[in-house]
Write a protein that binds this DNA or RNA. Sequence first.
DNA 1: GATACTGAG
DNA 2: CTCTCTCAGTATC
Length: 590
Amino acid sequence: MNDDFDSDTGDDDLFSDDINHDVPFHHAGTLMELNDNKAGMADLDKEKISRIIEEASKGSKFYDHKKKQQERIDAKIADLLRKKKAITEEQLKNASAKVGQIVRNLEKSRDLSRTFVHVDMDAFYAAVEMRDDPSLRDKPMAVGGPGMLATSNYLARRFGVRAAMPGFIGQKLCPDLIIVPPNFEKYRAVNAIFSEVFAKYDPNYSAMSLDEAYLDITEFLRLDQNVRKPSDLSHAEEVVSDLREEIFLATQLTASAGIAPNTLLAKVCSDINKPNGQFYLRPERPVVAEFVEKLSVRKACGIGKVTEQMLNALGITTCAEMFEQRALLSLLFSEISALSFLRVSMGLGSTFMGDSDAPAKSVSNERTFKATSDADFLRDQCRRLCEELSEDLVRKQLQAKSVTIKLKTDTFDVKTRVRNLPEATWNADVLCRHVVPMLESEMAPKRAFRLMGVRASNLCEKSANQQSTLDAILKQPSGTERLCPVCSTSLAKLSLALVNAHLDRCLSGSQQDDVQCPICSGFFRRPEIEHHAATCEGAATSTTPSVKSAPIRKRGAAREDGFVPRDECQRKPKKQLTLSAFFDQRKSES
DNA sequence: GATACTGAG
DNA sequence: CTCTCTCAGTATC
Ligand SMILES: Nc1ccn([C@H]2C[C@H](O)[C@@H](COP(=O)(O)OP(=O)(O)OP(=O)(O)O)O2)c(=O)n1
Ligand SMILES: [Mg+2]
C-alpha cells in the first residue's frame, strides 16, 4: 500500500504563479466590473448577512420547516457517529485492505491524456439583463421575483444576495436591489449563439444547462495549427482564451472556464477565477494530487450541504482528509457513495462525454399557489397540471406508464404518491383520472396545500416509424382543414389539449360513449363534445385563471378508478403517427 | 416497488 | 404578502 494516492506528492507549491494562469480579458469599460472597493462601505459582512436573513425568516412556516429538517439531519449524523463508534479495529483493518485494492485499481485507470473544459457563463441571466439594459449595469440587481431569485449580479452578491434566495429577503439585505423578471426565451436565444462557439471546439460538447457545458478539446488541440504569439500560456489555455473571447464577441457576455484532465476537476477549476477568468490544471499526477489535497469536499460536484455536514462530523473537510478516512467511509456509507468519495479524493472524474441525447426518464409539471384546502380548487389545479403535462408529453413524443402526484402542505412537508398505469398514455384525461383519486385520498379538511405537481415516468418513446407517417400527414397543403383521421370531425377550432383528447379517444377505439370536457369537467356524448368544448374553452380562457369553482363533476356509469380501456394506446403504430402529425402542425402554426 | 432524500442549476 | 421548478440518482424499507 505504498502506492497510496498521496504517498508521493512533492512539497512544491503547485499553486505558485507559474501554474495558476489567470487570463482575464481587458475590454475597456465592459460589463461586470466589480469596483473592487476595499473594505466595502456598502458591503455586508457575513455576520450581518446571516443576522438579516435570520430576522427576515424567523417565525415563518418555512423557517420552522427548515429547523425540523435540520434536526433530522442532525439525528442522521448522530446515527452515523454511533455507527462509527461501533466499528472495531479488526473491521477497519479489513476495510483498509479492501479499499487499498480499489485505490490501486483506480490509480491504474487514471487517464490524464484528454483535455476537458468546463465553460460557465458569469451571472448568466443577470448578465443578459444588464447587457440589454445599460441602466442596470452599475446597480445591484437580481433576476427572479419577490418569491424567488434565479441569480444575482456580482454587485448584489456582495450584499449576500444569491440564487435560490427569495426576492424579499434579497431586498432586506440590499434595499437598492433591483429585481428583474426572467426572460427565458432570451436566455435560450443567447445560449443558441454561444453554443455554436462550443461546437467549433467540440462538436460533441455536453450542455448541462443554458449557461454551462463541458467540452473535450483533445481533438481540437491536435488539429489546431493556429500560430500564436509566444507566451507563457499552454496550448490549451490559449485555445480556451480564444473560445471565451469568441463567446464575448458573439454575445457581449463573459464566461469563465476550467481546463483539466477530467470533468470533475474542470468544473472545480471553472469557479476559481470567476468571473471572466480561467484556470488550467496541468495534466500531471502530482499537480492533480496537490490540487485536490487542499480542496474542500464541498467543491466537488455531488457533495452538497448535507453530505458536507456528515463528512465534517467525521472530521473531514478537505479531500486529503477524505482520502485518509477512506477505510472508515467504506464502512459507514454505501458502496456507491464510498466509491464516489474515493474518486473525488483522488481527483478522478469522468474522462468521456456524457450522453447528451440520453432519453428523458421523467417529465413533470408543478406549481406553487396560495395554500388552500379547497377541494374544488385543488382538483381543478390537478386537472390543469395534467393537461399541461400531457401537452409536454405529446410535444416530446413520450408516453407514461407511471404517474406521480406531489403535494406540499402549508408547512412545507412534501408527499408523493405513484400509480402505475395499465397502459402507457399521454392523454390528459387518463392521467387526471389516476391522479385525482390520489389527491383525494390525501385531502383532509384540516390540511392545506401550497404546491401540487404531476410527474410522468416509466416513459416510452413513440417509434421513429410512426414519426415518418406523421410527416406524410403534415405535407398536406396548409390551407386544408384538419380533420380527425378516424371520425372526420373538423378539429380546426380546437386547442391542443382538446385535439389530443379527441384523437386519443378516437384512435384508441374506445367504446365509451361519455366524454368528459377537459375545461368544465362536464360529460357529453361523443358527437356533441367538440362543439361544446370549443365554446367552453373560449369562455374559460377569457375568465381569470383562478376560477374557484368548476362545475361539479357528474359521473354517469361505472369505473370510478380511472380505468383505461386496454387498447387505449396499444396497437395502432400507424394511427399514432397521425396523432403526432396533428400536433406538429399545430405547433408550427402557433 | 414505493417513498424520501440529496444535489444540480 | 412573499422561500421555485425540473430532472437525475441514491437510500431505505
Ligand atoms: N438555483 C438556481 C441556480 C441557477 N439558476 C439559473 C440562473 C443562472 O444565471 C443560471 C446559471 O447558474 P450558475 O450556477 O452558473 O449561476 P450564474 O451563472 O448566475 O453565476 P456564476 O457566475 O456564479 O456562474 O441558472 C436558477 O435558475 N436557479
Ligand atoms: Mg454561470
